[in-house]
């Protein structure tokens, strides 16, 4: 099996007496879409925050292509090629849609000393931004103010911004939440397409989407990994059914 691009072992994060993430191991490989399932409070978002650097682990190791990054700040991890989206839409509401994506793209070639350069005309960041917006299906609304977009469109922008940074690893925290049916279908198709070239970790509650997309599924309960394997194994697992699928109905 291919070496993981991003892998964690023994990853633990405590908040006071609560262990939100307890000795978790996970491996993300290029060309693989890895879905993360679990009931609310299982520690899925905590795990994403640990991998992205928004939170520091209490203990454990995170490796990106063999380099230990557990103590690395989130901006450095982003520059290494780990991109993330947020569960709660996290954009620049006062900027235009295009400027949101362009600013994201600018991070790849920041040129802070080019003080005479008009950033809005920088072809390099414009190209990357355009590509991210096209992939996310938002290229028709580029001059609108981001805060005025519909909720679903803001979710698309969230993805467009991550893609504009051209990451190798995508950590996506519930990208489908709040999207309309049509947007969801398009997003699922996009994720399918992206998964061949990227390593993707997908937190998602939409079971149909997860089982249609995932190559590997990890199920978390109470901060711990309950089961990890291909979709068929997860579907057949008695533990998973008892802990999670059984309660959630579909």
């Amino acid at each position: 099996m291919a070496e993981p691009v991003l892998g964690a072992a023994g990853l633990t994060r405590r908040f006071g007496g609560l262990t939100a993430c307890d000795d978790v191991a996970i491996a993300l490989r290029r060309g693989e879409l890895h879905a993360l399932l679990g009931p609310n409070g299982a520690g899925k978002s905590t795990l994403i925050n640990l991998l992205s650097g928004d939170l520091r682990p209490s203990s454990g190791s995170i490796r990106f292509k063999g380099t230990e990054i557990a103590a690395m700040a989130p901006d450095r991890r982003s520059r290494l090629g780990i991109g993330r989206s947020y569960q709660k839409t996290n954009i620049f509401p006062a900027f235009t849609v295009f400027e949101n994506a362009r600013l994201a793209a600018q991070s790849r070639r920041p040129r802070p000393l080019a003080l005479a350069l008009d950033a809005a005309r920088d072809p390099d960041s414009r190209r990357r931004a355009q590509r991210g917006l096209e992939l996310a299906g938002l290229d028709e609304h580029v001059e609108r103010q981001a805060g005025a977009l519909s909720h679903g469109e803001q979710r698309q922008l969230e993805i467009a911004m991550v893609l504009a940074t051209e990451p190798e690893v995508l950590l996506l925290d519930e990208p489908l939440a709040g999207m309309g049916a049509e947007e969801s279908v398009r997003m699922v198709a996009l994720l399918k397409r992206l998964s061949s070239e990227h390593a993707i970790l997908l937190v998602e509650h939409d079971m149909d989407a997860v089982f249609a997309l995932a190559d590997v599924i990890t199920v978390m309960v109470n901060g711990q990994v309950l089961e990890s394997g291909p979709p068929a194994q997860i579907r057949a697992s008695v533990d998973v059914q008892r802990a999670y699928l059984g309660q959630d109905g579909d």
Partner: peptide
């Protein structure tokens, strides 16, 4: 532009690199 991004949403700027 980056400064204005920081004013608007510092956490996201960090996540963007």
């Amino acid at each position: 532009r980056a400064l204005q991004g920081i004013r608007a949403n510092e956490q996201r700027m960090r996540a963007l690199g």
